[in-house]
């Protein structure tokens, strides 16, 4: 079959690949780019294990021809953080035991990331809607929902602290300026 030259943008890096037109993004990520963090459970769009972000939106990479996402910003689990540099969401996920076998986890984490990027304070119903297309056979889902909720709550608390630090710093600066004045 005739090969196509594609210029993909994956995790902020330019990735030129030469692939057949029918090749899916999943296959390109795993087999051509050796980014095996993205998993497959069905290759029919049923389980959500292959979820990646395309321009910030969660997409099933098993159903997506790679040729269709040329020029888009593709984000995979590898971009979030490694074991020594985990994203705070991943840290909470691990702490709660929300990953058991861990095979569905990258897909879930990417669905959650997309939600949290677009909706900083999701309700429980928002969270369920965002991960309803991801299947897990180990956990019973509770710890996954809890991890996302905890992360959102913690981030809000941290931002409040950041804001109060900013406010304090401004006040201190004003006092200092006044004293100097």
């Amino acid at each position: 079959m005739k090969q196509m030259a594609l210029a993909l943008r994956v995790n902020g890096e330019e990735k030129p690949v030469l692939v057949s037109p029918s090749r899916t993004l999943l296959e390109v990520l795993r087999e051509d780019l050796n980014l095996t963090g993205t998993k497959h459970g069905c290759e029919l769009g049923e389980c959500g294990a292959c979820t990646v972000l395309v321009d910030g939106k969660p997409m099933l990479s098993c159903l997506l021809p790679a040729a269709q996402v040329e020029g888009a910003e593709i984000t995979t689990i590898e971009a979030l953080g490694g074991p020594s540099t985990p994203h705070p969401l991943q840290l909470e996920w691990a702490r709660l035991g929300a990953a058991q076998c861990g095979y569905c986890t990258p897909g879930f984490v990417m669905s959650a990331k997309a939600l949290l990027d677009s909706n900083p304070e999701p309700t429980r119903e928002d969270i369920k809607a965002a991960i309803a297309g991801n299947l897990c056979r180990c956990t019973g889902y509770h710890k996954i929902v809890e991890a996302i909720e905890n992360f959102a709550r913690q981030r809000k608390a941290d931002q409040a602290i950041d804001r109060s630090i900013d406010t304090t710093a401004t006040a201190v600066r004003a006092v200092a300026l006044e004293a100097r004045g």
């Binding site: 963090g37 590898e78 691990a94």
Partner: peptide, 9 residues
Amino acid sequence: DGLEKVTGR
């Protein structure tokens, strides 16, 4: 093995 799992490693 938790952090390896949540980071897809």
